[in-house]
């Protein structure tokens, strides 16, 4: 398609463009509200990306501020913790991506299998609850669980554990809270997708003698696959963006845990808490975006090589 297009002459391309517009005007019209919305609230503000390379001076406009090159990025890379911070961020996110592609799917399939549909509704609804509890509140619930003196775990008769001073437990605790909070929410997507599957397919499979397990494998999972792949690709793009609320609030500011809880967003927050430099936080965000962008392009390329229909674009 593209080759043909580049081969045509300039004026032909132009008439082709108008023709295309005319042929697609209904689509274009339908996309217009969203297009304008994104233009206004996402693309116009993107001018702010250059803040990452500027020295903040509030008395000037963004364009008049002085260029400083990559100076705003230095605090990210010229610090002794950079390796720990990046390692934590990436490893946690990898675990989250894997968990995100399995647990919610399992929950959704499980729900769809339950014979009693009323109970399924109850579980479905209850599973959504944790999503509404803010991280600040969850951090206090965690205290109720892990507190040395009054915590539920330390009052179960076992040798008390000094949870908030022992880093080795925390990767598990944080992963648990992440899954617990987000999976019920994400399961809704897959549950809805299962509900959208044509039930005739199952009936046909049943007549062909496929058992429930087989039906899941040949019908349910393949129809969820595009959603799973898409969510995973998008999550790869956020591999350097840590869930600040989780990593900042739940460890309750316990410094002893920082080696396993310090992720990029927490690091940036701590580093900039006092000097409040929006140029440096822009730089941090820019770095996260660029890395994510490249990774998505690569992932998307690989996916396209394997199965073109599953690629994002």
């Amino acid at each position: 398609m593209r080759k043909v297009q580049t081969a045509t002459k300039q004026n032909e391309k132009k008439t082709g463009f108008i023709k295309n517009i005319r042929n697609n005007w209904q689509f274009l019209l339908m996309a217009m509200p969203g297009f304008v919305q994104v233009l206004l609230f996402s693309y116009l503000p993107m001018a702010g990306l250059i803040l990452a390379f500027k020295s903040i001076d509030y008395s000037k406009s963004i364009f008049e501020m002085d260029w400083v090159g990559f100076k705003n990025f230095e605090f990210l890379f010229k610090n002794p913790d950079v390796f720990t911070v990046l390692r934590n961020t990436i490893l946690y996110n990898l675990v989250f991506i894997i968990a995100g592609a399995t647990v919610p799917v399992a929950i959704a399939i499980g729900l769809s299998l339950l014979r009693n549909k009323r109970m399924a509704k109850v579980y479905h609804g209850v599973g959504f609850l944790p999503y509404f509890i803010s991280w600040v509140i969850i951090s206090y619930l965690a205290v109720a669980l892990f507190d040395y003196r009054l915590g539920i775990l330390n009052n179960m008769g076992m040798e008390p554990v000094n949870w908030y001073q022992t880093p080795k437990y925390w990767p598990f605790i944080l992963v648990f809270f992440h899954i617990w909070k987000s999976c019920g929410y994400n399961a809704v997507i897959y549950y809805a997708a299962i509900k959208g599957i044509d039930s005739e397919l199952y009936e046909a499979a049943a007549i062909d003698g496929a058992g429930v397990g087989r039906q899941i494998w040949v019908i349910t999972v393949p129809s969820l696959k595009p959603t799973i792949i898409m969510m995973a690709i998008l999550a790869v793009g956020k591999i350097l963006n840590a869930d600040f609320g989780l990593f900042y609030n739940v460890p309750m500011g316990s410094g002893a845990l920082l080696p396993v809880t310090n992720v990029l967003d927490v690091f940036t927050y701590n580093a900039l808490k006092l000097n409040g430099d929006i140029a440096m936080s822009s730089a941090s965000g820019f770095f996260q975006s660029i890395v994510g962008f490249c990774l998505v392009l690569i992932t998307n390329y690989i996916v396209r090589r394997i199965d073109e229909s599953q690629a994002l674009f």
């Binding site: 697609n24 994104v38 996402s42 503000p45 702010g48 990306l49 803040l51 929006i278 975006s289 674009f313």
Partner: peptide, 25 residues
């Protein structure tokens, strides 16, 4: 069959990764 499907997808996807921050918004 939408001619500009790829453009419109990418146009949207790009904003998921890049944002200019609060001040210009």
């Amino acid at each position: 069959e939408f001619r500009y499907k790829k453009f419109f997808t990418f146009y949207l996807f790009f904003t998921m990764l890049f944002n200019g921050g609060m001040v210009p918004w």
